[in-house]
Every structure is written in C-alpha cells, then in structure tokens.
Design a protein around this nucleic acid. Sequence first.
DNA 1: GCAAGGATCTAA
DNA 2: TAGATCCTTGCC
Length: 199
Amino acid sequence: MEIIVNGIEERFEFATESFYLQPTEIVAQKLIGSIFRIFNKEQNQNVLLRIVETEAYLSYDDKASHSFRGKTPRNSAMFDKGGILYVYKIYGIHHCINVVTEAEGFGSAVLLRAMECVETTIDFPGNAFRGPGKLAKTLGFTTQDSGISLLGETYSLLLPTTNVPFRTTKRIGITKSEELSLRFCLQGSQFVSVDWKKK
DNA sequence: GCAAGGATCTAA
DNA sequence: TAGATCCTTGCC
C-alpha cells in the first residue's frame, strides 16, 4: 500500500498478528513511523495517522507498568494476546491508548503518545494528537474501547517497509522504574509531545 | 506552578 | 471502607 507522507510516497504493509507478539521494546520501536488507520465504512470516514512517539511498558521488572502487580479487572486487556488496544483512564480526566503486545498472559503494552495526521476525511485541530490524553480525546477512545482488535477492518496498523530513524529517551510522567529508557520518538519530528519537567 | 477529577487498588 | 495513587492537561 502506497501512502504519501510529507509529499513523499512510501510503501506500507498491514501489521499481522505475529508483529504484535514480538518483544514489547521491539514493537514500540517499530511503531515509530508506522500508520494507525481508522476506516469506518458506514460513516465513510478514513483517517491515517503516523505514530511519532511511543513508550514501552514491560511485563516484568517494570514497576511503572499497570501489569506489575498482576492482572486486575482494569488491566485485563493488557494480559490478552497482542494485537488489541488497552485503554485506561488517568487522573480521572484523560484516557490513554496502548497497543497490547506479546503472547497471552504477558501483560505488556506500548503507550501511543503522539501522532501526526497524514490523511483524513474529518477535520481535526492542529495539535489534536500531540500528547496521549489529547490523542485519545480526539479519537473519542474511552475505557469502553479497551480490547478492540487492530487486526480488523476498522482499526489497523500499517508498517513502513524501510527503516525509520528514531530517538530513545526515558519515559515521561512516571515515578517508578524511571531509569528505563523505553520511550521512542521519530527523529526530527515536530509532532512529539513536549516534556516540561525534564532537563 | 498546580488543581481538576474519578476510577482503581491496597490495607485495615 | 477509607485513603493514596495515577503512563495528563490546561489552566493560573
């Protein structure tokens, strides 16, 4: 599938289930530069968003991960097989969207933090996808959408066929396992979320 | 700089 | 059942 990104035609391929079953750090890295596709046949809506910022949350030794204390009603989607969405509410106000990774029972996911609109039939405000909370709000995702498949017709991911340069940094907004460098950003992108607290 | 805001988990 | 915590944002 050819998609024009910033005036350049690039080739993408649909992510299959095996993609999501890879180690979480790998999935988080490969998601940089890939396209999140929302296709609604009935409403004739098509949205293509390029992912420019992600964070990995591991199934072990990661105290910042929701899965660290085991499976609960809230995080159960995280323990399902990779290839679905895990949506949770944070600070009682915002929602955050994660892509569940690895095999069933692992409890790992990749947080989508920022995206860039590539193509859409809907009008969105300019900064609508910069930051995890805004991103979820703009797309209208709530905890009700936790568990949605990324392998269906409506929601899918398109992977670039060429290597995408990315930056690795520490994660944002967490107080545990802060030292882990599990945040990935598209090199040179103006669309990554701003980290106010960091040096 | 910090409050809003509510679900969720933990400890009692 | 009460109290702390929280992968944020847009106010002041």
